[in-house]
Design a protein around this nucleic acid. Structure first.
Lengths: 336, 336
DNA sequence: CTGAAAGCGCTTACAG
DNA sequence: CTGAAAGCGCTTACAG
């Protein structure tokens, strides 16, 4: 029950492997009769050529590596949908890695993709590798990958890579500005640690908007989560129990919004009556059941699709200089 | 900027490729000194062996193929998380395909996985291929795959394959029973077409529960969606506008629940006050904002993990007879 | 239009 | 403990 090979087909057709190969690859220089005969045999024997052997001999695989931190987060689910669509249209295959935002899994994934000699990589790094040791270590891992890399959603500052992002600084800035315009002064942010560039940008945007409005940022209103449910929920609980608590909250991703909402509803409080909120990312059901949930609609599908298209371009033109594409992310404001 | 090969390492270390290969594969019969020296060179040169070449020479790849119908549905997001965890633990890689429930993409995915000579496949078929032509066609596609296949969530009746499922018949039966016990008599189901085995089982369970309670099933309460948002929303709109409309609704997946809820809320009606509902699958935010949404908690993460573990077992023991594993799915009832 | 031969980068009996 | 050689299943100049 072993696989049929090109040799079997060649023998049965009384031709050389070269000729069969030509038929497989739609080369023009094959006698039409012969071609038809060979195709018949391929069909009859249910033969499909080995992508593995093809990759080896061509010195070029047809797989794209994709690394995401959390495949069960709908944001990445949507992104993957965009990515896979472009992959299919280009007759490529996707090798998927999930890192759980863990540096070790991140490294392993990079290594694995390297071993698979992927044609290119779409990469949402678990880290931004901004510390010296990290960056040296990371550069080494990444250097191994000969193929082009397109970053998705998260930057790596010290490398000039292609990437598709949302404007995190500006979005946070604009969100806070909206709060201020609506009369809020005590504005909190539930964010991840500033050590990574994505939360850092969001924090900076938040700060600047306050400063520009002449409001002194209150460090007590700066909450450190990790973009995961458990910790952001706990931070939100602390926040909501404060004596002098904020009147508006910027939740910096979908999971953070959920953590916040859980803490809020547990106190029998509601948005927007008891506190104002703007979240990054939509939460599907919210619009449907008309909870007044304000959010920034970051279209991950478009981002993923754009990233993959950029990668295709980069594969075609490896010397193309690195570019960063920013995807527009409109605010959906119900009641602030 | 080409890849370093085993030959380069061998030359630099003044040994044969065989010896380097032994070091790479942790074979015991290598002089410790030599081993250390070779490892040093591998490290220094940043060499990583080609999985492609390895697969070809070993006649055995280290990739697992996974086919899902909708990667952006959290159900499959969770399932993939379970699958990928087991894949990582076994040092395998995942090739992911998304079919959008389209038969042609389904076929293409199978073909692609075959070409990649995957070690095994986790498969949620777009079809159940119950018609004669379909099944012949499908058997041919599937026969090409020499590797073991484990079905996930959706059965294919005419083939004895391993699989991990939820008990769709029983769940639908129990849900309807709960409605009846709560006093409902006019009970609707929003389901997909009976042509596929999964919705068929659900419909059968629904029917039987009614019959067992002495209630004559009312065909007007049987709504045909497709497990996607748009159509189920439209079906729900029709249902809610009926003269003699049902008092309870069984929504047969998460997206169907959303379609139903949208139609309901658009009428300024609510669950459970205006109509009762039980949905298949949780919708994350619902518990948090304490909407009284009843559901069957199908743990896709566990299902995915179980399926992948079964596949590992099948890869290890190819002659193992096919087994079906059913994952328990408890009801979460808030108010019926 | 066709084929023999070398090569892609590994592994694996086999011999020493 | 080590290596030469054949082989995995394709592709690709090259020659005819």
């Amino acid at each position: 029950m072993t696989n049929i090979t090109i040799k079997d087909i060649a023998q049965e057709a009384n031709v050389s492997k070269t000729t069969v190969s030509r038929v497989l690859n739609d080369a023009c220089n094959v006698d039409p009769e012969t071609r038809k005969r060979i195709q018949g045999i391929i069909e009859k024997r249910n033969y499909s050529p080995s992508a593995v052997a093809k990759s080896l001999s061509r010195q070029e695989s047809i797989t794209i590596g994709v690394i995401v931190p959390d495949i069960s987060n709908p944001f990445f689910g949507e992104a993957l949908k965009g990515i896979i669509e472009v992959i299919n249209n280009n007759n490529l295959a996707m090798i998927l890695c999930n890192t759980d935002d863990d540096a070790e899994k991140d490294r392993k994934s990079l290594e694995m993709l390297k071993e698979h000699r992927v044609r290119g990589v779409i990469y949402t790094p678990a880290f931004d590798y901004s510390s010296k040791e990290d960056s040296a270590f990371f550069k080494k891992s990444l250097k191994k990958i000969v193929a082009p890399v397109v970053l998705l959603d998260r930057r790596i500052d010290f490398l000039r890579l292609d990437g598709v992002y949302f404007d995190d600084y500006q979005t946070a800035y604009d969100a806070v500005k909206k709060f201020i315009e609506a009369g809020h002064r005590k504005i909190a942010i539930i964010n991840a640690s500033d050590e990574k560039s994505l939360p850092r940008l969001r924090h900076q945007g938040y700060m600047q908007a306050l400063l520009d409005a002449g409001i002194a940022p209150d460090e007590r209103y700066h909450f450190l989560g990790d973009y995961l449910f458990k910790k952001t929920y706990e931070q939100a609980k602390i926040m909501l129990a404060m004596e002098d608590r904020p009147t508006a909250v910027l939740a910096t991703n979908n999971t953070t919004s959920m953590g916040f909402l859980k803490a809020l509803y547990e106190r029998n409080e509601k948005i927007p009556d008891d506190i104002s909120c703007i979240g990054f990312d939509k939460i599907n059901i919210m619009d449907i059941i008309d909870i007044q949930f304000n959010y920034v609609e970051r279209d991950a599908y478009i981002a993923g699709k754009t990233a993959m298209e950029l990668l295709i371009k980069k594969i075609a033109f490896p010397n193309k200089s690195a570019e960063s594409i920013f995807v527009n992310a409109p605010f959906i404001i119900k009641s602030i």
